[in-house]
Write a protein that binds this DNA or RNA. Structure first.
Lengths: 324, 324
DNA sequence: CTGTTAGCGCGTTCAC
DNA sequence: GTGAACGCGCTAACAG
């Protein structure tokens, strides 16, 4: 930067301004500086800038995984909004390991990210303490609570589970099954379903809890376990679409008719849910919008705007298709 | 850090060492420092560390998108290997926009990433110049070339396309179709297919080039266009599994038998490819391994080890399933 | 609109 | 095994 300044015959601070707020520099000066930048091949060191300004223009995001497209869409939405505003995304994946979130948060805070996005509302006390101490904007996502750490963008997994349960019950199914991974949000969906079932005399629900981080194969195996029961469920709600589609495919192979012999529903409404045959009943939750909105909230706070309300319930929508 | 040093009765540099190389600090001193860190809630500022040491422990990765799980797996593999080594991942998505890569590279270099991972081997001259000037380790992925910018982990899209073409031809199909997005690697796959077709007298191939960033829906539409022809292809190769599965589903809906009336093949071997009915013939390319290996190469270079060879051809494998 | 001064919070290099 | 001085490259705050 010193070279650039010398070449342009100005001081370093003017170069700095020419880069960050070109409008505040005289056009002639600006032109000379730009020429000098080009000649020297100067690349501003944003690390030094971050240190000096104590703003990194980096946002940290922690998700369980991006393989499973439900979070991939969220990350994509976030990343597009952030990039458009000149921010970068530091991505961390926990693979559903309990301790991974805290160490990622710690690492991100060490990098002085300007904001953080977390998945879910369950965090270790240490994590919460760290985030509060850092005093940066934080957005929790994919769930709902009255007391977020700071801001929140999501929907009620419990209500969504209940709504899907009511849909199944309304369709006349009474013996229900639930299959989900061992993680917080999946459990909330089950709790909702169970509550809906409790409201209807004679309705029952059987639950299979799998390890977290499930995929197609697990759905296939789970539906088999149900089908082998003397009295299998009539309808099965899977904690995510991948599980449900695995189950759907297994039914197709075995000649189990969906929904006549076994109704199947998923969760999240991946692109593929509408494409399979029969098309999958699921709950649409706006994965992409969650990411976009989270990013927008952060940007608002970065720009000093007050965010109200701090809780954004984006809701959900039961999408009834042919599989139920 | 000054507070910590004072509390522990040592100098700042000793605190610094206690954090980075605890082995080089006397156990008693170390214990006092750790206690002081806990009492003060001190969080080392890695930005300052980066500036002083000119090593950021950040790797930048540019992918077209992570929605499409083929790159999601690569990113996941990368991120796991990097996180285990104490590195963080800065993620950028181009959404297949031509100019997006260069601006992301520019931004990442400005942050002084220690290394970069790019998707593909086609980059603007400006991008290549920047990367060379930065003199950091760079890994290109998902394709093959004799002259990578620095290092490369991938496979030959052309050969993979040709291999799948030979598979279709060996199965007796002569009128082939190809559907792919308008992007470099998809075009290479087509080129390979076309070459395989040229080797067999009487074999033909019809091509549909879609916009880049395709999904299930596009596959569905594309197969319809083929089916409406007076003489549709007998077998259709799709540039990625999502397209192929969309087509598969459309065939199921229309009562078009796969593979008897229309054979279908995809590319990348997503988890779901093995699960659909009929199971999808595709080309396995080790998306996850590409990411892991790219990360390992970078780590090797960060640690000063020489990497040879700099080109890692991970190969591919035609996975013949029921859909062809 | 432009410049000056004074750090940002560490790690490097040497010395002890 | 520990410390002092210096600088990494930039920007905030103020002055002009």
């Amino acid at each position: 930067m010193e070279d650039v300044a010398r070449l342009a015959g100005v001081s370093m601070i003017t170069v700095s301004r020419a880069i960050r707020e070109p409008a505040k520099v005289a056009p002639a000066t600006l032109a000379r500086i730009e020429a000098a930048i080009r000649r020297t091949g100067y690349v501003p060191n944003l690390t030094a800038g971050s240190l000096a300004s104590s703003r990194s223009r980096i946002v940290g995001a922690v998700v369980p995984t991006i393989d499973n497209s439900i979070f991939a869409e969220t990350v994509r939405g976030m990343s597009e909004v952030l990039e458009a505003a000149g921010y970068q995304l530091l991505l961390g994946q926990t693979a559903y390991r309990a301790d991974a979130e805290d160490s990622l948060v710690q690492a991100f805070l060490g990098r002085r990210v300007d904001g953080m996005v977390l998945t879910g509302i369950g965090h270790s006390p240490a994590t919460v303490r760290r985030l509060r101490a850092a005093a940066i904007p934080v957005v929790e996502t994919w769930d709902l609570t009255a007391r977020p750490i700071d801001m929140l963008v999501g929907f009620s997994n419990r209500d969504a589970g209940a709504a899907l349960g009511r849909h199944l019950l309304a369709r006349g199914y009474r013996r229900l099954g639930f299959v989900g991974g061992a993680e917080e949000r999946g459990r909330s969906r089950y709790a909702g379903l169970a509550a809906a079932v409790a409201d209807v005399p004679g309705a029952t629900v059987l639950r299979q809890e799998l390890a977290a981080g499930t995929s197609y194969k697990d759905g296939r195996a789970a539906i088999l376990r149900f089908l082998e029961l003397p009295e299998p469920p009539q309808a099965c709600f899977f904690g995510n679409d991948a599980l449900a589609i695995g189950a759907l495919m297994e039914c197709a192979r075995r000649g189990v008719r969906v929904p006549q012999d076994m109704a199947i529903a998923g969760f999240a409404d991946l692109d593929i849910a509408a494409e399979v045959t029969p098309a999958l009943t699921t709950v649409h939750v706006g994965s992409r919008q969650i990411g976009e909105e989270a990013a927008r909230l952060l940007l608002a706070r970065f720009e000093g705007r007050r965010v109200a309300p701090r809780i954004r319930d984006l809701g959900f929508r039961v999408v009834a298709r042919a599989s139920t």
